Simulated assay, not measured.
Amino acid sequence: MPIDPLPARARGLWEGLAAAPVSFASGGGVSVVASPTSSLCPAGWVGVVSLGGAAVVTTPTERSAALVRDGLAALPMAAVADADAVRRVLPVAEVLGPATLSYASPDAFLPASPGPLAAQQLPGDHPALRSLEEAASEDAGEAALGEITSPAFVLRAGGRVVAAAGYRSWPGRVAHLSVLTDPAWRGRGFARVAASAAVTHAFAARLLPQWRARPLASRRVAAALGFQELGAQLSIRLAGTGAASAGVAVVP
């Protein structure tokens, strides 16, 4: 049976980001490894990435690896990235996520029709993007438009940018999507149009688009564009270790 390239590329990405010898077991299950330089999570945290019935987990020390290995062994595979389930088996002080991980292939991509507003291109550091982030307030940190390395693809209304999308280049030729819409302009399909332009740009550069989302609305936009949900990411700070962090993952 041929290997599906989409899950294979997603697994390869996260195995590399683990920064230690670990892989998603072909027969399923959880593989835990100590990796103080892991990019699956903030420094000093435990990072869990579940894809296709298997998971890789990184911890900051060998001692915490043993603790996490024993704790997660008590959970069914489907629950290892479930924050509530993990809290029942480990001394959790703080969690980030879980966030759904979705990927798109050129064959499955469903480009959005522009509708009344078409996407325009701006430099990723354009001041109009900062104005959009101010309007979006607390959602701006999740979208992380300030981190994109691609151009920004924006929709304007009344002379203002009301939606924008772009991507940050990740290792393994992955394009990590950032999408943000002004709260006053949501529910009109603008996020889908902006994101569609960013995904098209990523495919032209032969990159694998990745969509990481927690809100259901964001997951629906990804699904409408043909993204396939393959797994989830969860970051855990164990009680008595590390400091709080605002991000979901730290990627070089």
Rank of each mutant, 00 (worst) to 15 (best):
S137L: 10
S113F: 14
A164N: 06
W170E: 09
R156K: 13
H176G: 15
L129N: 03
P116Q: 00
E142T: 12
Q121S: 10
G187D: 07
G159I: 10
P127Y: 04
A118N: 01
D125R: 13
W185C: 11
L101S: 00
A164M: 04
E138G: 04
L177S: 07
G166P: 02
G146L: 08
W170I: 09
A119L: 00
S113R: 15
Q121R: 13
I148F: 10
G189H: 07
E134Q: 15
A163E: 08
A128H: 11
Y103G: 06
V161W: 03
A164R: 08
G189V: 03
W185F: 15
G172L: 05
G189W: 11
A119S: 00
W185S: 11
A163N: 06
L110R: 15
S169M: 14
H126Q: 08
E133F: 04
Q121P: 00
A157C: 05
R168I: 06
G158A: 00
G187T: 08
L122W: 05
P127I: 12
G187M: 10
P123C: 02
G124C: 02
S102N: 01
G166R: 08
R173A: 13
P123R: 08
S102A: 01
S137G: 14
L177A: 10
E133C: 05
A104S: 00
F190L: 15
A144L: 13
E147W: 14
D125Y: 05
S137K: 13
P151M: 11
F109D: 02
A118T: 08
W170C: 05
L122Y: 03
G189L: 02
P183A: 03
H126E: 12
R173F: 12
R186Q: 13
D125W: 10
P111I: 15
A198K: 07
D125V: 11
L101N: 00
V174P: 01
H176V: 13
G187Q: 12
A135P: 09
S113L: 13
L117R: 09
A108I: 07
A198V: 02
R186H: 06
A157N: 07
E134I: 14
F190Q: 02
A152L: 04
A163D: 07
V179M: 01
P123N: 12
S137I: 09
F190S: 01
L110S: 14
E133Y: 03
P116Y: 05
S137H: 13
R188H: 15
L129G: 04
V154H: 08
T149G: 09
S131V: 14
F153T: 13
S178A: 15
A164S: 05
A157P: 02
S178D: 02
L132C: 05
A157Y: 11
R192V: 09
V179Q: 00
F109L: 06
A140Q: 00
P114A: 11
T149P: 01
A104C: 03
L117Q: 01
E147P: 00
R168W: 07
L145R: 13
A112Y: 14
E133I: 05
W185E: 12
L132P: 06
A104H: 01
A165M: 09
P106F: 03
L155N: 01
A197P: 03
R186A: 08
